[in-house]
């Protein structure tokens, strides 16, 4: 029997080697007891493995280039022209462009993560995931990582093209803080996505509808196209619970440091602290909710019933 390497090369024949056997152990107990390193490496490999279909899908079916990049750019442009029609100050164009770019990550979280476990159940993959030894959070990380490739392409395209076409000028004083806030926003978004994934798994078909609730209403309360300070108390509440709201506000303050920014929201450093807290809370909560809800799903037999 021959073997092929991962580059498709033929390797040396291994006559007599039992193709069915892989790293045999003396007993099932030995096979079952993994070291922490084995656990960690399995979860790490799971992230990469689960990201693989997402990334390969991008190259095999390319309609997303039109629908996920060009059209969203046009949608963002619509709001740019609203401000132009109103003869708004130029930094408002920048607010819209930045908001349009961050939309990409939010949509990735709600469409590609939050309801993904429910989708996996209806495809019949979920029970295979739960029957395998990796942690389900690694699967979700993998989905997020795979979807991140498309989202970041979309965000970059909107940001770069819109900036060039509409003449947006950024004025950044604290690059490190800006990059840090951006990364923290992503981490918090994906942590929230993981938590939503477990909740949506239990809510079944309602998950689809709840995802819809998280589009325009979240755009509104997050101040996607306007400074969130304008929403008063509602804006403050949003900043404390929605990563998109607090991250976007902080990035706007940092990206347009030289221009007048409506007062009423915390300073970027404080908002970065809020994001750190969100990351911790969401990841801890998501681990907890996934564990609880896995147990509930096993108890009620929901891991493999497609119609629920």
């Amino acid at each position: 029997m021959t073997a092929r390497g991962d580059a498709g090369r033929r390797t040396v024949d291994a006559p007599g080697r039992n193709a069915f056997v892989y790293r045999p152990t003396a007993s099932p107990q030995e096979a079952a007891n993994w070291t922490p390193r084995q656990v960690a490496m399995t979860n790490f490999r799971t992230v990469l493995g689960r990201a693989y279909p997402r990334v390969s899908g991008l190259f095999r079916e390319k309609s997303w280039v039109f629908f996920e990049i060009l059209l969203p750019f046009l949608a963002t442009s619509a709001f740019v022209f609203v401000y132009r029609a109103l003869e708004a100050p130029p930094q408002y164009i920048g607010f819209v462009v930045l908001g349009g770019a961050m939309t990409a990550f939010w949509l990735n979280v709600i469409w590609m993560m939050a309801q993904q476990l429910w989708w996996e159940k209806s495809q019949g993959n979920l029970e295979l995931y739960f029957a395998a030894p990796m942690h389900i959070m690694a699967v979700l990380f993998g989905m997020a990582f795979g979807g991140f490739v498309m989202s970041s392409t979309r965000a970059a395209a909107v940001l770069v093209v819109a900036t060039a076409v509409y003449g947006v000028s950024f004025s950044v004083d604290q690059w490190a803080l800006l990059i840090g806030v951006f990364l923290l926003t992503l981490a918090a978004l994906y942590g929230l996505g993981m938590m939503l994934a477990s909740l949506f798994l239990m809510w079944g078909r309602e998950a689809w509808h709840l995802t819809q609730l998280l589009v325009e209403p979240v755009y509104f309360v997050s101040g996607l196209n306007f400074p969130i300070a304008r929403l008063g108390v509602l804006g403050s509440v949003a900043i404390s619970i929605l990563p998109l709201a607090v991250g976007l506000d902080a990035m706007r303050q940092l990206a347009f440091a030289g221009s007048a920014y409506p007062a009423g929201t915390p300073a970027p450093a404080i908002e970065a602290g809020i994001l750190v807290a969100m990351v911790v809370v969401f990841i801890v909560l998501s681990r907890w909710t996934l564990a609880i809800l896995e147990r509930r799903a096993r108890s009620e037999g929901r891991l493999s019933v497609r119609w629920q």
Partner: peptide
């Protein structure tokens, strides 16, 4: 979700943009 929140949120985004300016 479909008959109140989504359409209303879309309208309010624009109304606030208008009022901001």
């Amino acid at each position: 979700i479909y008959s109140v929140a989504k359409p209303l949120a879309s309208a309010l985004i624009l109304v606030v943009m208008l009022d901001v300016i």
